Amino acid sequence: MAENDKSYQQLKEELEEIQYQLEEARDTIDAIRSGEIDALVINGDDGHQIYTLKSADQTYRIFIEQMTQGAITIDENGKILYSNSQFALLINQPLEKVIGQSFYNYIAKDNLPVCIELIDSAWENILTKGELKLASSLHDIPVLLSLKTLDLDEGISLSIILTDLTEQKNNQQLLEEKNRQLQEAEQVARRLNVNLEETVKLRTLDLEQVITAKVKITEDLYESEQRLSKILGTMAEGVWIVDINNELVYANNMAKQLLGVSEDLQNPGKYNNPKWDRLKLDGTLLKPEENPIYLAMQTGKPIFDYEIAIQVPGKELLYIAVNAVSIYDENEKLSGGLGTFIDVTQRRKAI
């Protein structure tokens, strides 16, 4: 009887041990399925060996985490299902507080209608892009949104890539401010010309006074031109001026450096330039009538932030953003065109 009781007790203990091992095996399998385990340690004939578990999408996860753009996925209610670290950095929030929140919470209030319209379009399987502002705890951030639906195992979600446009907007404002200053300088020069003509007319009866006035005004004009030349020469933007025949008559230091132009020592006022090509952003040749300065002279309207590519012989392809205006003489007759540009090669490569 004692042996039977002992055997029963042993069987009971063995059954409990088997149930424990079974439960442990189930937990291990569930952990492998859910991705909670990175490696397994197996005890074999040669001792303990480590086997790593690497999913097929690990490379893509690393890539997305190291992107300079923000990347998220949302469901149909706008809830954030996934976010990379860059998006959390954009809105100045800890990553763990972003997941599960509504994407709309991070949109500037006056941009909500635009955001909703973009997302509605994207849910209709339309590759959608648009600009709006994120509401960060520091300040609103302008971003470019690229939206596309994703058909995943767990269902359809919407992926959103967010590119920070802060630097681009700042450069655009700087370019507009420099263009405004350049227009003011042109107006000053034109006023000086008008003053010169009026002074000459008033002094025609007295030759000595006329000569004295001309010398004084010429000196003032020369000093103004020298000041303007120094301003243009030290600007970080390229500046070039063409005549009515679209021939280059002036290029500042930055324009010479970026475009490889130089003054013709044999012909003062003329410039030598290599035969560089103007290209559209898609790589095709830019027609002469599509040149931003030509457009400004033909239409009489200023051109802002017109991006083209320049292929200078022996140099890397250069992308520039151009502002252009027409130049008129004292009789309001078209006399040429003026263009300013900045190097946007790095910005273009980042897009």
Results as ranks from 00 to 15, higher is better:
residue 1 M to D: 12
residue 5 D to V: 12
residue 7 S to P: 04
residue 12 K to S: 07
residue 14 E to W: 10
residue 19 Q to T: 13
residue 24 E to K: 13
residue 27 D to Q: 15
residue 31 A to I: 04
residue 35 G to C: 01
residue 38 D to V: 06
residue 38 D to Q: 07
residue 42 I to W: 10
residue 43 N to C: 12
residue 44 G to A: 08
residue 45 D to E: 15
residue 47 G to M: 01
residue 49 Q to H: 15
residue 50 I to R: 09
residue 52 T to F: 12
residue 55 S to V: 10
residue 55 S to D: 13
residue 57 D to T: 11
residue 58 Q to T: 08
residue 64 I to F: 00
residue 64 I to E: 00
residue 66 Q to R: 14
residue 71 A to P: 03
residue 72 I to H: 00
residue 73 T to M: 02
residue 75 D to N: 06
residue 75 D to P: 00
residue 76 E to L: 15
residue 76 E to Q: 15
residue 80 I to C: 01
residue 86 Q to T: 05
residue 88 A to I: 00
residue 90 L to E: 02
residue 92 N to K: 11
residue 92 N to W: 05
residue 97 K to L: 09
residue 108 A to N: 08
residue 109 K to A: 15
residue 114 V to Y: 05
residue 116 I to F: 05
residue 118 L to D: 05
residue 119 I to M: 02
residue 120 D to G: 06
residue 126 I to D: 11
residue 129 K to W: 11
residue 133 K to D: 05
residue 135 A to E: 07
residue 137 S to I: 07
residue 142 P to R: 00
residue 144 L to T: 04
residue 146 S to K: 03
residue 148 K to R: 15
residue 150 L to R: 02
residue 154 E to F: 11
residue 155 G to Y: 00
residue 159 S to E: 04
residue 163 T to Q: 14
residue 169 K to C: 05
residue 170 N to C: 13
residue 170 N to S: 15
residue 174 L to S: 15
residue 174 L to Y: 08
residue 175 L to D: 11
residue 177 E to C: 09
residue 178 K to H: 13
residue 180 R to C: 05
residue 181 Q to V: 09
residue 182 L to R: 09
residue 183 Q to K: 14
residue 185 A to V: 05
residue 188 V to I: 14
residue 188 V to A: 12
residue 190 R to V: 07
residue 191 R to C: 10
residue 192 L to C: 02
residue 193 N to H: 14
residue 195 N to Y: 10
residue 195 N to I: 06
residue 196 L to K: 13
residue 196 L to G: 09
residue 196 L to H: 14
residue 199 T to F: 14
residue 199 T to H: 08
residue 200 V to F: 13
residue 203 R to S: 11
residue 205 L to G: 13
residue 206 D to S: 07
residue 208 E to R: 11
residue 208 E to M: 10
residue 212 T to E: 14
residue 213 A to E: 05
residue 221 L to C: 06
residue 222 Y to D: 14
residue 223 E to S: 08
residue 226 Q to K: 14
residue 227 R to T: 12
residue 227 R to F: 09
residue 229 S to T: 10
residue 235 M to E: 08
residue 235 M to V: 05
residue 241 I to P: 03
residue 244 I to F: 07
residue 244 I to M: 10
residue 249 V to I: 11
residue 250 Y to W: 05
residue 251 A to K: 00
residue 257 Q to N: 11
residue 259 L to M: 07
residue 260 G to Y: 07
residue 261 V to F: 10
residue 261 V to T: 06
residue 267 N to F: 09
residue 269 G to F: 03
residue 273 N to S: 15
residue 275 K to R: 13
residue 281 L to V: 06
residue 283 G to C: 04
residue 283 G to S: 02
residue 285 L to K: 08
residue 285 L to G: 08
residue 285 L to V: 08
residue 285 L to I: 12
residue 285 L to W: 08
residue 287 K to R: 13
residue 301 K to Y: 09
residue 306 Y to T: 04
residue 307 E to A: 12
residue 311 Q to N: 10
residue 312 V to H: 05
residue 314 G to Q: 01
residue 316 E to Y: 03
residue 318 L to C: 02
residue 318 L to D: 02
residue 321 A to C: 01
residue 323 N to K: 02
residue 323 N to W: 00
residue 327 I to Y: 06
residue 329 D to G: 02
residue 329 D to Q: 07
residue 331 N to D: 13
residue 334 L to Q: 05
residue 334 L to M: 03
residue 336 G to A: 03
residue 338 L to I: 04
residue 341 F to M: 02
residue 342 I to D: 09
residue 345 T to H: 04
residue 345 T to V: 04
residue 347 R to W: 09
residue 348 R to C: 02
residue 349 K to W: 04
residue 349 K to F: 06
